[in-house]
C-alpha cells in the first residue's frame, strides 16, 4: 500500500473521505498534541521494552497503521541500528504530521520516561550508598541479567539455519565478552562473514 507522506490514511479511504466530508479532513489527522501524548502513554507503560505497547496503540487503539503497515515500517526500524521504538516513532510522526511530527513523536515517547529515570538517578545519588539500596540493586541486576539471558535464548531459538549461523553468535560472545574487543570491528567483520553467508545461500535458493 503506497503511503502518503503527510497522511495516516490509505489512499482510497482518504479519497472517499474527501469526497464525502471534505471539511472534516483536518480533524481526522492527529494534531501534534495527540501524537505527543499517544507516544507518551506508550513510553510510560512498558518495562523492559515498549514495542508491544507501541503496536497496540498504533494498530489497535488509534488505527494510525494497519497490521501490515506496522510490520513493514518496523522492518526498516529493526534493519537500522539504534533504538527501534524511537525509530518507529520518527516514522509514524513523519507519516502523520511531517517533520514536526517526526520531532514531536519521539519526544513524547522519551520525555516521560526520561523524567522518571532522572528522578531515580537523583534518588540513587542521594541514597545509593546505603547498604539496603546496594543489595536491592544487586538483586535487580541479577534478575535483569536473567531476563537478558532468556531474551538471548529466545532470539537464538528463533534463528533460521542454526547450524550455520549460531557459530557467529559464539564468535561474537568470545570476541566481546571474552576478549573485550571493540564492538565496531566485531560487528563489521561479523556482518561481512555472516551476511556474506546469507547472501550466498539466498543466491543458491533462486
Amino acid at each position: 500500500m503506497p503511503s502518503q507522506p503527510n497522511s495516516g490514511w490509505p489512499t482510497d479511504f482518504h479519497h472517499t473521505l474527501r469526497l464525502t466530508v471534505d471539511h472534516s479532513q483536518k480533524n481526522e489527522r492527529p494534531d501534534l498534541r495527540a501524537l505527543f501524548f499517544a507516544f507518551s502513554s506508550v513510553g510510560l507503560s512498558g518495562f523492559g521494552g515498549v514495542l508491544p505497547f507501541a503496536r497496540r496503540m498504533l494498530v489497535e487503539q488509534r488505527h494510525w497503521l494497519s497490521a501490515e503497515e506496522f510490520n513493514a515500517q518496523l522492518g526498516l526500524c529493526q534493519f537500522l541500528p539504534g533504538p527501534n521504538v524511537v525509530n518507529l516513532a520518527v516514522v509514524v510522526g513523519k507519516r502523520q504530521a511531517g517533520l514536526a511530527g517526526a520531532i514531536v513523536a519521539p519526544l513524547g515517547l522519551l520525555a516521560g520516561p526520561l523524567v522518571v529515570v532522572l528522578l531515580l538517578a537523583l534518588l540513587y545519588d542521594r541514597y545509593g550508598e546505603l547498604p539496603l539500596a546496594q543489595s536491592m540493586l544487586r538483586g535487580v541486576a541479577a534478575a535483569g541479567a536473567g531476563l537478558l539471558f532468556a531474551m538471548a535464548w529466545r532470539m537464538g531459538a528463533a534463528l533460521r539455519d542454526k547450524a550455520l549461523f549460531l557459530p557467529f553468535t559464539l564468535l561474537v560472545v568470545i570476541g566481546i565478552a571474552g576478549l573485550r574487543w571493540p564492538m565496531l570491528w566485531i560487528m563489521l567483520g561479523g556482518l561481512v562473514l555472516s551476511g556474506g553467508l546469507a547472501w550466498w545461500r539466498l543466491g543458491r535458493q533462486r
Binding site: 538471548a152 549461523f165 560487528m187 561479523g190 551476511g195 556474506g196 546469507a198 539466498l202
Partner: peptide, 12 residues
Amino acid sequence: IGVAPLAVGLIF
C-alpha cells in the same frame, strides 16, 4: 539474516 545471530551474541 546476517545480523540476527550477531545480535543474539551481543545480548548474551
